[in-house]
Design a protein around this nucleic acid. Sequence first.
DNA 1: AAACTGATTGTTCGG
DNA 2: CCGAACAATCAGTTT
Length: 149
Amino acid sequence: MPRGSGASRKATKDPNAPKRPLSAFFLFSQDERPDIKKKSPSLSVGDISKEIGLRWKKVSDDVKKRYEQKAAVEKQKYETRLAEYKKSGGGGGGGDISSAKGSKGPSKASTSTKSAKKPAGKKSATKAKSSDEDNDDDDEDDDDDEDEE
DNA sequence: AAACTGATTGTTCGG
DNA sequence: CCGAACAATCAGTTT
């Protein structure tokens, strides 16, 4: 039973089942894992996972926030994916939409109201980039109009 | 051969 | 509100 820790990807679930949005930690994993592997090849996933967890605590909060933002994007995509999934036949496979209850405004972001607030100094976080990304979307200067409650 | 396991943390959804 | 489940990954183990 694949229910414990591993990601069992079996036909138990609908083929179109949208996978859950990856968390910041997972995004971090995908970035660091290859690096760790490079550093120590032949490590089992378990060992690597521990290393990642260790590094995760070591990364600056700013870095974490950066991943969280990315994760937030993934989340939004997840909403879209889920919408498509439901539209597509919802139940998967079948084609018929029994649970088409519907009705709901197509777009309603849950966390909608706002996005995360960024640290006061946005540009200061230069150290975060291990490599250079010319201009990606990572730190967008910009408009943060946020309000704190 | 192919499904399952393990280990990490975070997020998501249901009861 | 709390907790179970599941997300990636890949080598090793199991059926």
